[in-house]
Structures are given as structure tokens and as C-alpha cells.
């Protein structure tokens, strides 16, 4: 095989590979969206499964807002998620910077500890916290979820932030030190502007983690007016019967914010992980 035919063959293979992944992702999403616009009669009709809504309806979406207070859930989710991701991002900046830029005693232990936090089953954290939160009257408050989400998202975000810092040349900071900047000033005025992609990425990681969480929410929140979106949707799942139309409509709305966010920042994530590339 000569060079140009080889190139063509590689191109064709790549086209099919990429097409495969596109379908793999798009088809399930398509099915969710299509189902959300169908009438209930059309959805549960075992004789004919339609691949495009025969009667196009917005009832499933309207129902979410009129029957199940989707607006309230949205507000709760936003409050908990935004506060969590802001705090996680700031803490990760300091922690990540400390881990990336200094050698100190106990660093190895700290890194192992981060790994261990990932091994602890979430239920093992939730149960004791549930008991403590009940004693402190924190059940049914935003605070309970804020605390839990901050803590559970922090290890991964801090470690990721560390590797972003490690990809930025140290010479940049040294120049600032020579100019008489303190470490704190250097961090905020010199390093962070360059780190923008990494910071956005970490913020989004924390946002996604908190926005999508269901289990702790169902345990820490009892009253309906405090529920977040996943808990609200969960209440639509009956033991034997699921209202698939509303379910899929709710799913679409739940995924929309994180999906949009991700579309805009995914290139920053890859960029943040690649640029400079000192180590994996």
C-alpha cells in the first residue's frame, strides 16, 4: 500500500468510528426528547411504536410546572448547586496550588488520603451525617446538602486543580516574585488569569456533581418545598407504574443546564488537561 491509499483507508475508518460514537450518544437522547413530546396514549401503545410524535404535545412539560412545582425544585437546585460549586472552586484553588507548588512533609500521605476519600462508599458518609444533622436540626435545610456536596466533590476537584497548576510554567511566578509580588498576589493576579480554562472546568465538575445528585437529597430532605430537581423527578417513579411522558420531559429539563454548560466548556477541559503537559 502506498502512502496516499493508506491515508484514505485511515480516513474512512476514522469516519465510521466517529459516526458510531455519534449515533451511540445521539440516539438515546433523541429517544428521550421524542418521547417527551408524545401523548400518553401514543407512548404506551404496544402495537405501534412511533419514531416521531404523531400528535405533538407540550402537555408533559406543562404538567411539570402545574402539577409538580418544577419551578420550586429548579430554584432549590440552583441555590444548592451554585453555592456548592463556588465554594468548591475557591477551596480547590488554594488546595490545588499548595499541592502543586510546594514540597512538604506529609504530602505523600495527603495524596493517599485523597485517594482513600474516593473509596469510602457514600452511604457510609450519609448515615453518620444523617444522625448528626438530625441532632443539629439541619435536616430539610439547604445547608445539609451544601455541606455534603461540598465535601464529596472537593477531593476530585482539588486534585484536578493541582494537575492544572502543574501544567503552568513556574517561571511565570518567579518573574512576579522578582517584581516584589507576594505569593498571594501572584496567585490571584498572575497565575489564575492563565488558569482560566482550568478554573472553569473545576467549577463545572462541581456543578455537575451537585446538580445531578439524588440519593443524599432523598435522605436529607423530607418536605417537598425543599426538594431539588432529581428528588422531584424521583417522586414520579411509582412502584409499578411510571408516567414516561412527564419523566422524559423532566429528564430533558434536568439535563439542559448541565448539557449547555458542558458544550461551552468541554474544550477548556481538554485544553486545561493538555496544555504544556508535564505529566499524566
Amino acid at each position: 500500500m502506498n502512502r496516499s491509499t493508506k491515508k484514505k483507508v485511515v480516513g474512512v475508518i476514522r469516519f465510521f468510528v466517529l459516526a458510531f460514537y455519534l449515533l451511540l450518544v445521539v440516539l438515546p437522547i433523541y429517544w428521550m426528547i421524542v418521547t417527551s413530546f408524545k401523548t400518553n396514549a401514543e407512548i404506551v401503545n404496544a402495537q405501534v411504536i412511533t419514531y416521531w410524535p404523531k400528535t405533538f404535545t407540550l402537555d408533559n412539560y406543562k404538567g411539570l410546572f402545574s402539577v409538580m412545582n418544577y419551578g420550586t425544585y429548579l430554584k432549590n437546585s440552583l441555590i444548592v448547586t451554585l453555592s456548592t460549586s463556588l465554594v468548591v472552586t475557591v477551596l480547590s484553588i488554594y488546595g490545588g496550588y499548595g499541592l502543586a507548588r510546594f514540597k512538604f512533609r506529609g504530602k505523600g500521605v495527603a495524596m493517599v488520603f485523597f485517594l482513600v476519600t474516593q473509596m469510602i462508599p457514600s452511604i457510609l458518609v450519609i448515615i453518620p451525617l444523617y444522625v448528626v444533622f438530625s441532632q443539629m436540626h439541619l435536616i430539610d435545610t439547604y445547608t445539609s446538602l451544601f455541606i455534603f456536596y461540598t465535601v464529596t466533590n472537593l477531593p476530585f476537584c482539588a486534585i484536578t486543580m493541582r494537575s492544572f497548576f502543574e501544567r503552568i510554567p513556574y517561571a511565570l511566578e518567579e518573574a512576579a516574585f522578582v517584581d516584589g509580588c507576594s505569593r498571594g498576589q501572584t496567585l490571584w493576579k498572575v497565575v489564575l488569569p492563565v488558569m482560566f480554562p482550568g478554573i472553569v472546568a473545576v467549577f463545572v465538575f462541581a456543578f455537575i456533581g451537585a446538580w445531578n445528585e439524588l440519593i443524599a437529597g432523598t435522605i436529607f430532605l423530607n418536605t417537598q418545598k425543599m426538594w431539588t430537581i432529581p428528588i422531584g423527578l424521583k417522586s414520579l417513579v411509582g412502584k409499578y407504574n411510571v408516567d414516561w411522558g412527564s419523566m422524559m420531559a423532566g429528564g430533558c429539563l434536568a439535563l439542559l443546564p448541565t448539557a449547555l454548560m458542558f458544550i461551552f466548556v468541554q474544550k477548556y477541559i481538554v485544553e486545561g488537561m493538555t496544555a504544556g503537559a508535564v505529566k499524566g
Binding site: 466517529l18 446538580w211 423527578l233 414516561w244
Partner: peptide, 28 residues
């Protein structure tokens, strides 16, 4: 292309689970 194929990262396990449960429903 990249922003589409990486999308499932942003998805909640809960919604994805429901979507699979619905797609693999025995009858409908």
C-alpha cells in the same frame, strides 16, 4: 462533534438510568 460525544459526562445517572429503563421496557 466533541461537545456532543462528551455530553454523557454532564448527565445525571438518575436520568440516564430512567432513559435506559424506558428504552429497554419489555412491552413499549
Amino acid at each position: 462533534y466533541q461537545s456532543i460525544v462528551f455530553l454523557p459526562w454532564a448527565f445525571s445517572a438518575f436520568v440516564v438510568g430512567l432513559l435506559f429503563r424506558w428504552s429497554f421496557n419489555g412491552e413499549y
